[in-house]
Design a protein around this nucleic acid. Structure first.
Lengths: 199, 199
DNA sequence: CCGGGTTGATACAGATCGGTAACATCGAAG
DNA sequence: CTTCGATGTTACCGATCTGTATCAACCCGG
């Protein structure tokens, strides 16, 4: 297999997937056509359809790539604070804040669920699967921290992040999302004091 | 003006606006066409375009109608617990839970912001305006309750609701959204005890 | 050099979309 | 009854969309 060439142009398939992710993210799934994706990838529609049988297939591939990137993010968090779950949890908050503030278009998975309203759309299973895994991972981290109600803390943080990313699209960065970090830290601190915790 | 007839069929304009809200909500703004809206309203596309100059105009009208319904919701909350801000706040939480659990498609305003990705789309100004007013209203209520950090509590509750409604679309009702009420109540209780409050 | 898989280019099909023109019809007010 | 505005009907335009067919060019291993 062509493993030797390193600095060359990626193969059409990867260029297409990359361009699709970028354009889906910027304009929304229904806001961009396969023609524009192929052109942005420096190829044409025919090649796109030779690698991905349909636009839906391409969408699903992009969502899976999002999941891969999220896994890399988790790995980065763990490698930066090895054996220190609490530091990892705070790194999760800081990383989430970067998502909120450095990107005005929110979460691709959540956006896709909004755009693909049909409950039978094949992408919906993928979205739910990825989001659920993300949730479980956060809950496991909270448990490692020693939080008594780890699942509840994980779900609270999940909703805060999800809400911050979607609120930023409607109200802007100056809206409720601005205080995302502060809220998360307070919630974590609250869960760490079981005696005083109101949850 | 025709104020007398009460039990008759609404005029085409209102039927169109109602059908549009329903179909936009179910299928998304980009997922439904003006033809289908006109047909669902028991009229035709020509009449639609005589009342609303464009699909964008119709979208904006629907968003404004959403705002009207939200105002009615606020009025209901206040009328059910007159002079009791804390009860009103708890009623807000229960009402928000109804939005989360009784409707699988989330907030029309947030969804529209996701679907209309172009930052210059005329609907975006409307969305931001309505969401901001909603936020201010909740903050004012928190202040009336006597919360010290009223704005922060309002923003936290806002993010929890926004997150719960969007998370429900990706992960389902069994996901993090399931504990929405519990989270809100705990956050409120936490803010009511300034000494113990971690926020 | 040769042969086969990959890619590029172009044209097209079929459907749907937002939006408009033209004309028939109806209903109520005068 | 007549008149006029609101509505219904039909056909259409141009653009865009997903997806395909066809054929030429290319690159790389043998």
């Amino acid at each position: 297999m062509s493993e030797g060439c390193v600095s060359s142009r990626p193969r059409p398939r990867d260029r297409i997937a990359g361009a699709a992710r970028d354009l889906f993210h910027k304009h929304g799934i229904r806001g961009i056509g396969v023609d524009a994706i192929a052109e942005a990838a420096g190829t044409n529609k025919m090649t796109l359809y030779r690698h991905f049988g349909s636009k839906d297939d391409l969408i699903i591939q992009c969502l899976r790539d999002v999941a891969l990137e999220a896994e890399a993010w988790w790995a980065e968090i763990e490698s930066e604070h090895p054996g220190d779950p609490l530091a990892q949890l705070h790194a999760w908050v800081r990383g989430g804040a970067e998502f909120v503030f450095d990107d005005e278009r929110g979460c691709d998975l959540a956006n896709a669920a909004v755009e693909l309203a049909e409950t039978n759309h094949p992408a919906r299973r993928v979205i739910e699967e990825i989001k659920t895994e993300h949730r479980n991972r956060l809950a496991k981290l909270c448990a490692k921290v020693g939080i008594a109600q780890a699942d509840l803390l994980a779900d609270t943080l999940s909703l805060l992040l999800e809400g911050a990313r979607v609120s930023r699209q409607s109200v802007g960065v100056e809206g409720p999302s601005a205080k995302f970090v502060r809220m998360c830290e307070a919630v974590i601190a609250s869960f760490q004091n079981p005696n005083l915790c109101a949850f």
